[in-house]
């Protein structure tokens, strides 16, 4: 895999193949992040495309100064999601498949690994605070390191670790209790 820094430099000069290589390298993570945030895969496809279009259009102003290119992409994705949610009068409704096993009170320790789908995680994540939700999305869907998340969210690494801890705790409680009302 080519170095992002070198590809970014070439893409800024207008090298479309270099940008296409960046696309190949980051598409999956951005797509997963968008799907997790909006819970709609069809919309996520369009939105992911828009992220890369905007990134290409703005490459001229991006400067590699310690902040990873991926963090910049996630910020663009973040803005796209904000716009999308504002435009929508209501979020798409996805009914959960209630046959999927979710650990309930019969398993108070909740030690088994539960089979979930991304829509269920999206719904459960609505019970989190904004910051917790963002950390979970960037860490799990975006596969970003603590350092990258800290830079993207402009918080300290310690704060991100604390948010990560409280978010997973809260999600565990939500998923165990089945607090997701069955729809997004």
């Amino acid at each position: 895999m080519q170095d992002d820094k070198g590809l970014v430099h070439k893409a800024r000069q207008g090298d479309k193949e270099a940008f296409a290589a960046l696309y190949e390298s980051h598409f999956d993570r951005i797509y997963r992040y968008v799907v997790m945030k909006i819970g709609n895969r069809a919309e996520a496809e369009d939105m992911t495309q828009q992220v890369f279009v905007k990134a290409y259009e703005s490459m001229g102003s991006y400067q590699w100064q310690g902040t990873p290119f991926s963090a910049w992409l996630f910020r663009i994705a973040h803005n796209q999601i904000v716009d999308f949610i504002r435009k929508e009068s209501k979020k798409p409704t996805v009914w959960l498949d209630e046959s999927l096993p979710i650990a309930g009170n019969s398993d108070p320790q909740g030690e088994i690994e539960v089979k979930l789908n991304i829509e269920q995680v999206t719904v459960a994540a609505q019970q989190l605070t904004k910051a917790q939700r963002e950390v979970i999305s960037l860490r799990f869907a975006g596969e970003m390191s603590i350092t990258e998340v800290a830079k993207a969210m402009r918080k300290s690494e310690g704060a991100i670790k604390a948010l990560q801890h409280s978010a997973i705790q809260a999600l565990r409680k939500t998923l165990k209790a089945g607090k997701h009302d069955g729809k997004i």
């Binding site: 997963r32 799907v35 979930l116 799990f140 705790q169 565990r172």
Partner: peptide, 17 residues
């Protein structure tokens, strides 16, 4: 319990386009 929850989430969001 936290790691098991995290593992479940990780599998759930592993949506490969």
């Amino acid at each position: 319990p936290l790691l098991r929850t995290a593992a479940s989430i990780h599998k759930a969001v592993d949506v490969t386009p």
